[in-house]
Design a protein around this nucleic acid. Sequence first.
DNA 1: AACCAGGCGCATA
DNA 2: TATGCGCATGGT
Length: 273
Amino acid sequence: MTVNFDKKTIVFRNVDALNIPLSLDCGQAFRWSENSDGSWHGVAFGKAVDISQKEDKIVINGSFCEGDEQIWADYFDLDRDYSAVCENLKKDSHLKTAIEAYPGIRILRQDSWEALCSFIISQNNNIPRIKGIVERLCVHFGEDLGNGDFSFPSAEKLSALTVDDLAPLRSGFRAKYIIDAAQKVAGGEVDLQKLSCCDIDEAREELIRIKGVGAKVAECALLYGCGRVDAFPVDVWVRRIMSELYPDGLPECTKGVEGIAQQFLFHWRRNVE
DNA sequence: AACCAGGCGCATA
DNA sequence: TATGCGCATGGT
């Protein structure tokens, strides 16, 4: 893999095992939308970009400073040998089928607060509506980046708000959870930085102290926001997969990368039949 | 322990 | 066009 960049463009070449549309649109991130030309527009880490892919070449257009290329390499987890991970997962026949049906799904390494907050919103909810609530959250309380783009609002900003302030989001009963999460994160009660490296059970316990964060949301925050690919969110689809295909538990080859396995199985199970 | 809370997409009628 | 179902968590 190589990278070239200037103030307007970052280009990654010879990128392995990454399909941009699939990765941006498989239910793990809520701020990406497809442009009419097939490129993808979105905001992450306070930066608005358009991303296009031609085979193993990824082009990111935006307004960049020195070092930004690493932000995007991290976002797509380009330093991980995904081919090796997938080859290993393919030792299991179901995973082999899922990976070969949807090659190039990667777990994005999103901002930890954005992931936590987004997956609190995701509970008891469907993807179009989650996207709408997240969009309104950003428009109302994020930083205006110009061109109609807004950053994801910080925990600090949201921690000063009330449930009534969040009324325009139409997030329903989740509003109080967003406020509680913002206050615990902004106040240091929950240390998101620490969760990426501490014992995973300790991380789970810390997260579920937030109102509105149960086992599923905690697992999502760890997987998508804290780089914990050993986290394993179990939603209704994964529950079905487990009972139908793995009644005795996950196969050995998923050890340590359960979250990556989950994403392939989840997408496959949702899209077949 | 079963149900509701806010509301919307989705499948079915 | 209307009706009911699913969603994931906490509180009753």
